[in-house]
């Protein structure tokens, strides 16, 4: 009867929501298939939603509707108010976590400048001279002419990144 009183689907659903959020940044981001679109995380959120739904039903059930054919047992009495509060709080938190995930991945991450004047295909790449990590000046021309693997390079891949922020 204690097993029935402990509303495990609510807790499992809440924990799974947390895992669904964190696993993107710590696990799934390392694999292009699960990073470019976070389907693995959305799947985890869907399972969490199912568990929460079951948990909410348990918390708010009267204890009689499902067992009308059998005589009421001690453990079958209506759930205490505490259980309803826990279910409400954990479900709300889970929804908030989901909302924050959607915001981070689909809205926040799209707030990038449009870069309309960035060099386009078949344009010349603007020349530059910058310091390498030993403080030596390096120009685009140096990069395009000094050998790669003992041969003249076929090209240079310029990777602009945000830096160690």
């Amino acid at each position: 009867m204690n097993a029935r009183r402990f509303n495990w689907p609510i807790w499992a659903g809440f924990l799974l929501s947390l895992i669904a959020f964190l696993s993107y940044f710590f696990v799934f981001v390392w694999f292009p298939v699960t990073r470019d679109f976070p389907w693995a995380n959305l799947l985890l959120f869907a399972i969490a939603a199912g568990l929460l739904l079951v948990g909410v039903r348990r918390a708010f059930s009267t204890g009689q509707s499902s067992r009308e054919d059998s005589p009421p047992k001690v453990g079958d009495r209506p759930r205490p108010r505490r259980s309803k509060i826990a279910a409400t709080v954990l479900t709300t938190l889970s929804v908030a976590i989901f909302g924050f995930f959607i915001f981070s991945i689909f809205i926040m991450a799209r707030r990038l400048p449009a870069s309309h004047s960035a060099p386009r295909i078949s344009q010349r790449a603007p020349d530059f001279t910058l310091s390498d990590m030993n403080g030596r000046p390096v120009s685009l021309l140096d990069l395009l002419t000094s050998p790669v693997n003992g041969k003249a390079p076929r090209g240079v891949l310029l990777v602009f990144y945000r830096g160690y922020w």
């Binding site: 990038l112 400048p113 870069s115 960035a118 060099p119 386009r120 295909i121 078949s122 344009q123 010349r124 790449a125 020349d127 685009l140 021309l141 395009l144 002419t145 003249a152 390079p153 076929r154 090209g155 240079v156 891949l157 310029l158 990777v159 602009f160 990144y161 945000r162 830096g163």
Partner: peptide, 17 residues
């Protein structure tokens, strides 16, 4: 910098962005 990648060929022309 916003994230961006350019492939520049040996003549200094952008070939992929």
């Amino acid at each position: 910098a916003r994230p961006a990648e350019f492939l520049v060929d040996s003549s200094g022309t952008v070939r992929w962005v």
